[in-house]
Amino acid sequence: MSHHIIELKDVSFCYPDGFFAIRNISFTILHGETVGVIGANGSGKSTLLRLISGIYPPTSGEILIGNIKMTNKNVNQLRKRLGFIFQNPEDQLFMTTVFDDVAFGPRNFGLSEIEVEKKVDEALEKVGILHLKDRFSHRLSDGEKHLAAIASVLSMDPEMLLMDEPTSQLDPKARRRIIELLKQFPHSKIITSHDLEMILEICSRVIILKDGKILVDSFSLDILKDEKLMESALLEVPISLKSK
């Protein structure tokens, strides 16, 4: 099962305006591993996810998905193995109904309408919103939109999940639901977030980014309780660890 691996080798990325958002980053995410990527605003978290998903091509370095180097030619093929959940679900729900949104990916893969419906039902069942199947996407609550966005990615059977701040803008109940859901997924996961309590609960490993570089990459508990390290990355130790 070693093919569910994400590997970055000396990856750098420079925006067209000359700003280097990512500088010489290297790491490997193993099969089934859940890694939290944290850092202050503008540290390069979202850019990193876009690089891994092939939206941005790296300025230098290599990205390997399942030991295959990502190139312009195979990027579409490799993307099928990744599920990217955006920070704002409204960007991801662009169809009219929840069903059509969740069916968008499977339909693009050329599945028959019967198979598409099966995939949609399975994905909606997994996130617990099968009852919202025929609702208009823009009429859902923020929590429901997040769940629908997750379902729209799960329906494509991704091997690895990339999530950009999955719990931002959510009320405590919806946040808890997403956390419990993420815990159940067997996929390799990369989660960027400012919600450090969630990172502590879900991720076994944490990478801190600062100014586009990796400041530290280690076990989450070791990193998150280190007050000095967290402060140097412009972060705070989670409250649950402070009281211990």
Binding site: I55, R79, L82, F84, Q92, F104, G105, N108
Partner: peptide, 9 residues
Amino acid sequence: YAMILKGFE
């Protein structure tokens, strides 16, 4: 981006 990530061609 969301569309191409869902296989839109």
